[in-house]
Design a protein around this nucleic acid. Sequence first.
RNA 1: GUCCCCAUCGUCUAGUCAGGUCCAGGACACCGGCCUUUCACGCCGGCAGCACCGGUUCAAAUCCGGUUGGGGACGCCA
Length: 492
Amino acid sequence: MEEVRTRFPPSPSGYLHIGGARTAIFNWLFAQKTGGKLILRIEDTDAERSSEESIQGIIESLKWLGITWDEGPYFQSQFIDEHVAAAQKLVELGHAYKCFCTKDELELKREEARRTKSALQYDGTCRNLTPDEIREKEAAGTPHTIRLKVPRGEGSILFEDIVYGFIEKKYEDIEDFVVVRSNGRPLYVLSNAVDDMRDRITHVIRGQDGLANTPKQILIYKALGAPIPKFAHMSLTLDPKKAKISKRTHGELVAVHFYREHGFLPWAFVNYLALLGWSTPDSREIFSTEELIQAFSLEGISRGNAIFDVRKNDPKFFTDPKAISVNTHYLRNLPVEEIEPYIRGELEKAGIWDPEFEGAKHDWFLHTVDLIRSRYHVTSDFVTHGRAYFSDDYPIDPKALKKNILKHEELKAWFPILADRLNAIETFSIEEAEHVIRELAEELGIKAGILINGIRTAVTGVAKGPGLFDVLIATGQRRVVERLRKAVTLFE
RNA sequence: GUCCCCAUCGUCUAGUCAGGUCCAGGACACCGGCCUUUCACGCCGGCAGCACCGGUUCAAAUCCGGUUGGGGACGCCA
């Protein structure tokens, strides 16, 4: 059996967005699954729009996602001579011809076609020029493009797409398309096909927008006598208004790096993206890397376009709720050690990382992360909602302050008492701490909840969190006492 | 305008190829309940969909035709 070779060919005209990432992921999964290879090819022939910065950004995003490639990155711009040579060969073989029509002439014809509401195809003016006419125009220095000579008359291109099944396109619906510009530079449809031939690509897995190009590229393969790869077109990713996801209209929200910066675990994001337009018969949703590779198949790609449910100005969800929920799942269920590096990254970014967290306080650190993670969704929550666990410099949420502290003025007097009594505990344990607090509540003749909620707010700055006694142990006797003593200033 | 593709809950989807086991299953989101010192987690329950019309058939989400809707491609961009 022939080795599977797939490729991911981004054009470096911006960051990697979720559509591109999804294409890369599917190619990668298929290569992994079949023991094949993934080739990374940067299609940088549009010098105007390409940039080194984009190349670096795309590569970084792929690395972050954990997508590995076996060959490349190759750069399309280095193979332009090869593309032009292929075009020359096409002309020599009689499968392509020189076209001397100017852009202006063509535009006029297109205008006319629009007016008469007929198909806007090239009319083949130069298809049948005699050798003499061609020589004459060349001698006069008239610039020319090269067009592929599409078979005329009855007949069609028929191919079987792995996702969409048989696709048929009549010859008459394909115009003699340009493969080389008048300035001698090849066009995408040619370059891409020639590169795939050279890279011996066996499976072209790409967005459905490439479907319309496929018959043209098959024509090129045939004319050049090259083996035709298998094609698998994937449904597109649309926004909630069913418009194609684009950098232009959605900006950062569709950039891979946005999710990296907003506390997504890379694998969680890959897992979510894989679910957009792909599924297994049992509708399973959570997969480890190995499991996803095992479960993956091109046949599971859906034909209908999927909507990436981006939320703009939604106070509750900063992006697709499903994406967040997948991330949340991993954040809560992965072994703590596996999410540790990401939490560390967040703490470092916030400037509250303490080297002891991986030294003397390592066990404490893992325990604390584990204690609080069940209510977080993204890793950055650890430095916002969870800041007080890792730093003494934390804000007090105004709403919590009002509800749990200011509402009970007596707490101003009770906090110091609590501080003293908690400080007096010899072995600071959950049981001891609970005993002290409940005893005081009883003495005062109040509900323990008043003290509990007040303490939680003073010690963590927020009204939510794990059971208070766990919180106290995690925070530590000394810090709890300090924070309670300091809390009397909250009434000022 | 021409060509191609698609159509199941708000969203992601299973089921469609091989019609009955589907008065359509799961997940997210949402709502309610239990648990509880708070918020979560967890558990239990609920809301909600086969775009429409016709045909084939004993039987259609599934097959066929049409309508409507959506998307994509039609460039000397990639």
